[in-house]
Computed example of a mutant assay.
Amino acid sequence: MRDLKTLKELVASVTDWKSLEKMSCKPFKPSILHLAISQDAPHLYSEEQLIQLKNFSKLLSRAESKPNTNKTDKRVAKKRQIEERPKEERIMPAMIKKPRKIILVQNGPSPDLSRRIVLGHSGTSSDLPRRIILEHSGPSPDLPVQFKNRVTELSGHDLKYLMHKRLFCSDVRPNNNRLSMPMNEIMCEFLTQDEIEKLDERDGSNGKGRLVGLEVTVLDPCLREFSLALKKWSMQRTDTYNLVTNWNRIVFINEFEEGHELQIWSFRVDNKLYLLLNKL
């Protein structure tokens, strides 16, 4: 790669706008490929890019929902042919609804898991988003004694093992400033009903602003305390919890790098949610 001095000389040699425009970085453009990748790996994209992809998905859905006159005419003609046949010769095609395929991805060792699916508020409509909760039936990993002692010192309770997390490049990249925790990798439900509803709230009078998030306290591997915000990003197939705001500070102080592995635990002090990071 060219060093900074060479790059500055190259830019200085450009005198016309067209040449400069060719050299500039192309802006992010949503595509079907990006949409497919983001559905199973949202951690590879920034929050702004995920919002663009969500809007792009809505546009595709609208385009696909437009009636196709030719197909409609063929269906009507076929239905008439069936109705005109003698009753004993009529064969109506069975309507078979394919079961929804759910892929669970684990990025590290974990206990035996059982799956519990919770529908939307009504609990009946197939159009409502599904919350997928993994409940581990085997023993949780052992938490080092210094962490247990700290939880006891804080009068903490309801200690839960949430997930094994392998850090991706997007988790330590400074311009992202967030740790992603895909919901389909969380081992158990750790939020109260009020907290779940809080994660769906947005600021602004019309409720269409930025996500408000939930304030949590995070203990790093050295048991230092940090105040962060927990937010939930919703995509077509995957919901992801994200620790934001001061995450870059935790990465810098602990020298986290891509490939490092963490155990993430939760506990409560009174009613306040705490998260604990144990570096393996």
Rank of each mutant, 00 (worst) to 15 (best):
D127M: 02
T152G: 09
G123C: 00
T152N: 10
G108Q: 05
E135S: 13
I117D: 13
L113D: 01
E153R: 15
G120R: 03
I117A: 12
L128P: 00
P109F: 10
V145N: 13
S114Q: 13
V151M: 13
P129T: 08
I117C: 10
H136C: 03
P139H: 14
D142I: 15
S114R: 12
E153I: 09
L134W: 01
L143Y: 06
V118A: 07
R130M: 11
R150W: 13
R116C: 04
P111R: 12
R131C: 05
L113S: 09
G138S: 13
V151A: 06
D112H: 05
S125Y: 07
I132L: 15
I117Y: 06
D142A: 14
D127L: 10
P129K: 14
R130Y: 04
S137E: 00
S140Q: 11
S137Y: 06
S122P: 04
G138P: 02
L134K: 09
P144E: 07
I133M: 05
E135A: 10
V151T: 04
P109W: 00
S126W: 00
R150Y: 15
L128V: 00
R130H: 01
V118F: 01
D142V: 15
L134H: 02
R115M: 14
V145F: 08
S110R: 05
S110P: 00
S110M: 04
D127A: 08
E135L: 11
H136T: 08
S114C: 09
H121E: 11
I133P: 08
L119T: 04
R115I: 14
S137F: 01
P144L: 08
